[in-house]
């Protein structure tokens, strides 16, 4: 089983699980109501645990305004891929069952404090948020929708990168999505990229890094190559803060780090600066 096929991190299965959530970072027990109220941000260590995309949509959008688009676009299996642990067809079906999503990104129209936008939200629980052809197609269509409706585009990324099971077709989604983003910018429309934990590989090397503004959640893992690959290449241990949002901002690639609870208000504010 690959890293991105791990089941979603769940609180420890202890008898108190009905009442308590456990911070996946520091293992602190937090009352479930408090955990939900904090939008899964640990009150002790400030770890921003991963959200699924329904939770993210709820967090960022005005109540009742989100309308999904491109729901009919789903997973393709161009290579008829099979590896040691089974077929991609079976794994993607399992991901669909588990998450209730058709692909690793949810796209739709919505309002953020009254500003109309097109929003894409990735979900790490769907095969590690990997960029498959269905993912790329949904993002391209969402970007085209932004141009048609003359609205800003916002993409919230959470992804390990390209989806190996779709081979070269997955790689091409990087070019495809960036072409669509270029059209949004050409139309004079804002494009904001929100990078959450993790945003790496082929997603960081395509649409996630080319926002008018790149905005990150605190301590999110952001980078191109994996830590182990780099350590093997340079034959040195990397510092703990390597490839964090803070590290990436210090090197000039992130505009602002925004805590989860403040993200909606922040987006609303920059939308107004951008004239929306």
């Amino acid at each position: 089983m690959a890293w991105f096929e791990n089941p979603a991190q769940e609180p420890l299965r202890v008898p108190t699980a009905a009442l308590w959530a456990v911070c996946p970072k520091c293992n602190t027990y937090v009352a479930k109501a408090e955990w939900a109220d904090a939008c899964k941000v640990c009150p002790k260590c400030d770890h921003h645990a991963r959200l699924n995309c329904r939770e993210r949509v709820q967090l960022l959008t005005d109540i009742g305004t989100f309308e999904e688009i491109n729901a009919a676009v789903s997973v393709n299996d161009p290579l008829k891929f099979k590896d040691a642990s089974g077929s991609y067809a079976a794994k993607s079906q399992a991901a669909i069952q588990k998450t209730g999503m058709g692909e690793a990104v949810l796209t739709g129209t919505c309002a953020i404090e009254g500003s109309d936008v097109v929003l894409c939200v990735m979900d790490f629980a769907f095969m590690g948020g990997s960029l498959g052809s269905g993912t790329g197609e949904r993002i391209l269509l969402a970007a085209e929708k932004a141009v048609t409706l003359h609205r800003p585009l916002i993409i919230v990324s959470a992804s390990g990168g390209a989806r190996m099971h779709e081979g070269i077709v997955s790689l091409m989604q990087m070019a495809k999505t960036c072409a669509a983003i270029a059209k949004v910018k050409e139309a004079g429309l804002p494009y904001f990229s929100v990078l959450t934990d993790p945003t790496t590989g082929g997603v960081s090397a395509s649409y996630a890094m080319v926002g008018d503004l790149n905005i990150a959640e605190p301590k999110a893992l952001i980078g191109f190559a994996g830590r182990r690959v780099i350590e093997q290449t340079i034959k040195q241990k990397l510092p703990d803060d390597f490839q964090t949002a803070e590290y990436t901002m210090a090197h000039g690639f992130i505009d602002h780090i925004v805590p989860r609870k403040e993200m909606k208000a922040f987006l609303a504010k920059i939308l107004r600066y951008a004239g929306f």
């Binding site: 960081s204 395509s206 980078g223 190559a225 690639f253």
Partner: peptide, 15 residues
């Protein structure tokens, strides 16, 4: 895949 390449924005440059 080197640490300097990461620091200098490999992902951003390709994107």
């Amino acid at each position: 895949p080197g640490s300097e390449a990461e620091a200098n924005g490999q992902a951003e440059a390709i994107a």
